[in-house]
């Protein structure tokens, strides 16, 4: 199949190089709120990927029928219906996690990542390519979520998936948990550090200087 190498790059590009969170600045809201523990992060990542792939497929299939002026409302309605289905499934089978995620599952509807991908890719491409692109972006998003979730849970509680990894002090071990890791600010610091790391490794992602400092001659004495 001649198209397969192109599909493969569509799938792998968003993982690191075009990562939706660190480069495209999409879908950050949920990325930070649900990452205090690894299991909520994984649930969120899985739900988002499913919604993203399905909505990209559906919207791409009916892309020639949607009038341009109301396309935003049509897209949001499709996404919202999918999210309601996911939310009901989570409430039925994973009630604990669904309660801890509270409104954030519903907020997938307004996740910029979903609308960003449907607007910029699914609207102009055939269903298969759009779904592959959506899958790639969903996986790139999941990757960041899992990394941050795992780091915050290990450093904040000394546990991973609820199992002890680093023995904490009050259990007779040596590790003092950083309580800050469970609070809001650490998520920002963590993501900032991650962005820094990725952009140092791939220097072409660095943003251009906005203002070039004026050339001022050193005062000579």
């Amino acid at each position: 199949m001649a198209a397969s190498p192109r599909l493969w790059t569509t799938l792998t590009e968003p993982l690191i190089r075009q990562n939706p969170i660190t480069l495209q600045i999409l879908g950050i809201c949920s990325a930070l709120a649900v990452t205090t523990a690894l299991d909520t992060a994984l649930t969120m990542a899985a739900s988002l990927t499913v919604v993203l792939v399905l909505s990209a497929g559906i919207i791409s299939m009916i892309r020639k029928m949607i009038p341009g002026t109301i396309r935003l409302i049509v897209q949001i309605t499709i996404v919202a219906s999918l999210v309601i289905v996911i939310d009901q499934i989570l409430q039925a089978y994973f009630f604990d996690i669904s309660r801890r995620l509270s409104v954030f599952v519903s907020l997938i509807t307004t996740n910029c990542l979903v609308l960003g991908r449907t607007e910029s890719f699914a609207r102009n491409n055939p269903p298969l390519a759009s779904m592959v692109d959506a899958l790639g972006n969903g996986l790139g998003y999941s990757l960041i979520l899992v990394v941050i979730g795992a780091l915050r849970e290990v450093l904040g509680r000394g546990k991973l998936f609820g199992f002890e990894v680093l023995p904490t002090v009050d259990q007779g071990g040596w590790f003092t948990p950083f309580n800050l890791m469970l609070l809001a600010p650490s998520a920002f610091f963590m993501l900032g550090g991650l962005v820094w790391a990725v952009r140092s490794a791939l220097p072409e992602q660095a943003e251009p200087i906005e203002h070039t400092p004026p050339e001022v001659e050193e005062p000579s004495r």
């Binding site: 650490s186 900032g192 962005v195 820094w196 990725v198 952009r199 140092s200 220097p203 943003e207």
Partner: peptide, 13 residues
Amino acid sequence: GLRGLGITFLLTG
């Protein structure tokens, strides 16, 4: 590497 998005995250933190 910190220019733009990175420093904004640290500020927000």
